[in-house]
Design a protein around this nucleic acid. Structure first.
Lengths: 144, 144
DNA sequence: GACAAATGAGATAAATTTATCTGATTTATG
DNA sequence: CATAAATCAGATAAATTTATCTCATTTGTC
């Protein structure tokens, strides 16, 4: 079907919102996150491992171990998560798929897409986990 | 990596721009299109077949056969091609991947994404093949 | 009618992404 | 020290998407 972010990336975002809702100084297990979000546990494990090596989350092995955000929730944006998991392909490659499309030699929608894309990038740069976690507990929003 | 449109859809768009540049009343073979665009020939064949059954292009079998646009290039928009190949998933599903996200019970970026997405949809609805084919031959744009 | 060049259609293969399984290691607790 | 519950790591499987292969059918031309 193809959407903007990969499945992995979606799971990562959801998991980090879940972590952001937790009181700080507390480890949360993969099992708990996966069950609550209804996402595949082992797959989520891989994703969190990868976010751990990238320094977005900290991990603690052993009994009562788990994960926590490596920074305050206000300091982690959607953009940060997307870059960590999906890289920058979504904002560097041609929307029509022309491999040689560039600013010098643009496809017919290059500039229009640039504007639209920059609005998306702005949005995900502005949205941090604190805000997302707060909103998702407000009435009128879906709960986690 | 994950982008907005599938690979198939990108190939479809490129191929139809190629067809739009051709004089009307002329069959163009898969082979020619695939070679010019440098996309896999048999894969493109499947895609054009599918666009044929959906009525976007006409096909002609046999010697000197091929494909042509089924309507004038002005009447076929990027939106039409995307809908035919990728469907409406890119504009109906939650950008954060929450399966239960909806207007009634929105995720924290539901409305913001709705606005951004609608701008994209507007853009691809406005861009028709005539315009795309014209621009791609202008100096300053990439050629086909 | 033979031939060449094209689409049509279905099977198959390759590549990528998503998901699962297994076992090792770590760590708090009784 | 034994145990239980967790991450870590690597192999494997399943699903999806992308790409290829083969053969039948169609059609214009000699």
């Amino acid at each position: 079907m193809s959407l903007i972010f990969s499945r992995q990336c979606e799971y990562a975002i959801q998991a980090l919102i879940y972590l952001a809702k937790k009181p700080t100084g507390q480890w949360t297990s993969i099992k708990e996150i996966a069950e609550q979000l209804k996402v595949p546990q082992h797959f989520l494990g891989k994703i969190l491992q990868s976010l751990s090596t990238k320094g977005t989350v900290n991990s603690q092995k052993g009994l009562f171990g788990g994960f926590e955000l490596a920074k305050s929730s206000e300091e982690i944006s959607l953009f940060d998560i997307v870059e960590a998991i999906d890289g920058d392909g979504y904002r560097t490659s041609c929307i029509l798929g022309f491999p040689d499309c560039s600013a010098n030699s643009p496809c017919p929608v290059h500039d229009k897409w640039k504007d639209l894309r920059e609005n998306i990038v702005d949005m995900i740069k502005k949205k941090n986990l604190l805000e997302l976690a707060n909103e998702i507990t407000k009435p009128g929003y879906k709960s986690l």
